[in-house]
Design a protein around this nucleic acid. Sequence first.
DNA 1: ACACGTCGGGACGCAACCGTACCGTCGTTG
DNA 2: CAACGACGGTACGGTTGCGTCCCGACGTGT
Lengths: 212, 212
Amino acid sequence: MTTEKRRAPAGAAVLRDEITTAIRRALTQELAAVGYGRLSIEAVARRAGVSKTAIYRRWNSKLDLVLEIVAAAAHGKLPALDTGTLRGDLALLFQAVAHALRHPLASQIIPDLLAEAARNPSIDATLRQVLHARQQEIGGRLVARAVRRGELPTDTDPDAAIDLIVGPLYWRLAIARLPLTDSYLDNLVESVAAGLGADSALPRPRAAPISG
Amino acid sequence: MTTEKRRAPAGAAVLRDEITTAIRRALTQELAAVGYGRLSIEAVARRAGVSKTAIYRRWNSKLDLVLEIVAAAAHGKLPALDTGTLRGDLALLFQAVAHALRHPLASQIIPDLLAEAARNPSIDATLRQVLHARQQEIGGRLVARAVRRGELPTDTDPDAAIDLIVGPLYWRLAIARLPLTDSYLDNLVESVAAGLGADSALPRPRAAPISG
DNA sequence: ACACGTCGGGACGCAACCGTACCGTCGTTG
DNA sequence: CAACGACGGTACGGTTGCGTCCCGACGTGT
C-alpha cells in the first residue's frame, strides 16, 4: 500500500505561507497587467521573487492557479443588503459594486476573465459559480423582497431585473470607463427603480409634446 | 532624390485582393478563437493558407493588423433610426445591437478587445472612435429626439442614458450569455423607457403594500 | 545531535513564435 | 518579347515560456 505511516512534514519541509501569499499577489498583478491570454508562470514567479518550482509545487497548471485564486477572491464578503426599501437596497448594492470595480486590478481582471470564459469552459464554470450565481442570488432576493413589499410588479422576471440592475453600472465602470459621481449613482438608483416598474418618485420637467 | 520616376507596380507585382481578404477572415476567426493576447501572426497565416510574408507586406505589426480590421468592421452600416417614438427607436436599436452581438465572432471579439483596451492605449483609442463615439452619437440623438418630443425630461443626461440603454443588453448577450427572446426585448424596451423617465405604458399587478 | 524530507533555486530540453532575408515565380508594360 | 519589380514561400537566428529534474539548505521530531 502507499498509505504507509509517514512523519508529517515539519520544519523547513512545510509550505511557507509568505511565499504562497506572494504568488497570489503576483498572479493578480500579472493578470491585470497582461491578461489571462498572455499570462506566464515565469512572469508570475519573477514578479513574486520566487522560483517556478515554488508555484508548480502548489498548483498543477496555470489554469488551476487562476481558478483557485479567482474563486477565493470572490468568496467571503456578501453584504446582508436589506434596507427595507427597493431604492435603499439598490443604492447599497451599487455602492458595493462600484467599490469593487473601482479597484484597478479588479476592473481589469474581471472583464478579461469574462471574455476568456467565452472560450474556456473551466473559467466559465468557475465564474458562473462565484459571480453569476451570487448575483442571481443577491438580485433575486432583492427583487423578491421588493415584490413582497408591493414596490415591484408580481410578474417581475428576476433574470431580466438583474440585467437591468447590473448592466448599466458594469458598462460604465468596466467598459466605457467613465467617471462615477455620487449624483450619478443617485440618478441610477432612481432610473433602475423606475425601469423595474417601481412607482416614480418625482415628476421631472418636460418639453411641451407639441411645440408648433 | 528618392522620387525618381518608377513604373507603377503591375501584373504579378500587385497585392492580390483575394489574399488580403483571406487574411482578414483568418484574423477575425483567430481573434475569436484565442483572443488578442494569444493571437499569433503565424496562426493567422496558417489559417488563411498564406505565408507570413504576405501579412507583413500589408501590415507592420500585429497591432496594425487588428486596428485596421476592427476599424473597418465597425465603419459602414449606421441605421437611420428615427421611428417617431422613443419606444420605437429603442426597439430598433436593440434589434440592431442584438443582431450584431448574436454573431459568435462578434460576441467573442468585442468583449476581448474591450478588456484589452484597458491595457493597450492604441486599442482603447480605436475602440473609442469606432464604438463609443458612435454609441454616443446614436444614443445622444435618440435621447435628444425624445426630449424634443416631450417623451423624456429636459434634464436627461445623455451619457447616463446610454449606460442605461446599452448596459443591460450588453450584459445579457456578451457577459451572462443568456438567451434572448422577443418578449424579453419587448419588456426591455418598456423597462429602459421607464428607466429613462418616460411615462409608463400600463399599470402592472402588485402585491398589497401591507399584507399583515 | 542526527536523520528526515520537503523546501526554493537553477539548469535543461523542447516547442512556439517573431521578424527578416533570400529565393524563384509571374503578369504587365514599353 | 524581354526586362522589370513586387509577389508568395521557405529558412533562419533569437527570444520566450513550459514543465521537469537535480541540488544544497533548512527546521522539526525522535
